[in-house]
Design a protein around this nucleic acid. Structure first.
Lengths: 147, 147
DNA sequence: TAGATAAAAGCAACACGGTTGCAAAATAAA
DNA sequence: TTTATTTTGCAACCGTGTTGCTTTTATCTA
């Protein structure tokens, strides 16, 4: 039984913002809260919807950008044309991104998840090609939808 | 020495269009020609530039869509927010896409290539997740830039 | 706790990628 | 060559993301 599950999300949010020397504002609190509640990835659009029409589009964009800069969230490549953001596990939020986990997109609930425990495989490239970074996106049915 | 290398590209273009029962128009010929000359992936913007300002944006979009529908080209997921299209090797152009090859993006020349001979690896997912499709994009230095 | 300072929010306007509807032009068929 | 069909080009629009500037809010310090 994880004890973090019982900690007030408000407290987590405040602590995270302070730890990254960001001023604590309504929009930042709300947006960070959405990520903490969700644990999947969110696109800008999702956030505007779930926040309840409260914040200006620009504020949301800037908040997301700030969080990316601070290493709180990271962007995920998608097939459709929208940037998705995800808060990763604790190790990621600390300030340095893990670039070597894979992403999973559920075809049912349409959520995107970071599978932090699944490392990208070695790819055997043809002669002449040199890999610097490997991005893997798996599509399928996620744990929640499968049960 | 491949003999196809010496066949007039015009002829290839015309044949490809007819084989897919598409009327042969200037824009289709030109765009298809760009793909045949290039063998890498092209984004809509690249095509507009290389075609020499000749065609309307809309025409280019519609032509690309038509080619995708006919199975002549296929789309490639990218990290930045633009759709890329690529003509694959002969087997792909025939009408059914190969979905199981990986894509390579060169950090030097910025081209995207289909590595048709490299199949996507098996991914070991956590319990509960079921994979339906795996997309792999490798970033690095391509054959041409490495030599 | 109040006032100064620095940062963030909100607004308007813009840029870009992509789509849609419709009339004019080009292709294919007769 | 004429007709029917397809494609083009144009104008207008939508969604996503950005920039500049003013007002508001949060933080720091007295």
């Amino acid at each position: 039984m994880s004890k973090t599950a019982h900690i007030n999300i408000d407290a987590q949010v405040g602590e995270l913002l302070k730890r990254n020397s960001l001023s604590v504002t309504d929009s930042r609190k709300k947006i960070l809260q959405l990520f903490l509640e969700q644990q999947g990835a969110l696109a800008h659009g999702d956030i505007e919807k779930r926040a309840g029409e409260k914040f200006d589009r620009v504020t949301v964009y800037r908040t997301l950008q700030t969080f990316v800069d601070k290493g709180i969230i990271h962007t995920i490549p998608t097939a459709d044309n929208s940037i998705r953001y995800a808060l990763c596990k604790d190790e990621c939020s600390a300030g340095h991104h893990h670039d070597h986990h894979i992403h999973f997109v559920c075809n049912n609930c349409n959520n995107t998840f970071c599978l932090d425990d699944v490392v990208t495989p070695e790819i055997n490239l043809p002669k002449g090609y040199a890999a610097e970074h490997v991005e893997v996106v798996v599509e399928g049915i996620c744990k929640n939808c499968n049960s």
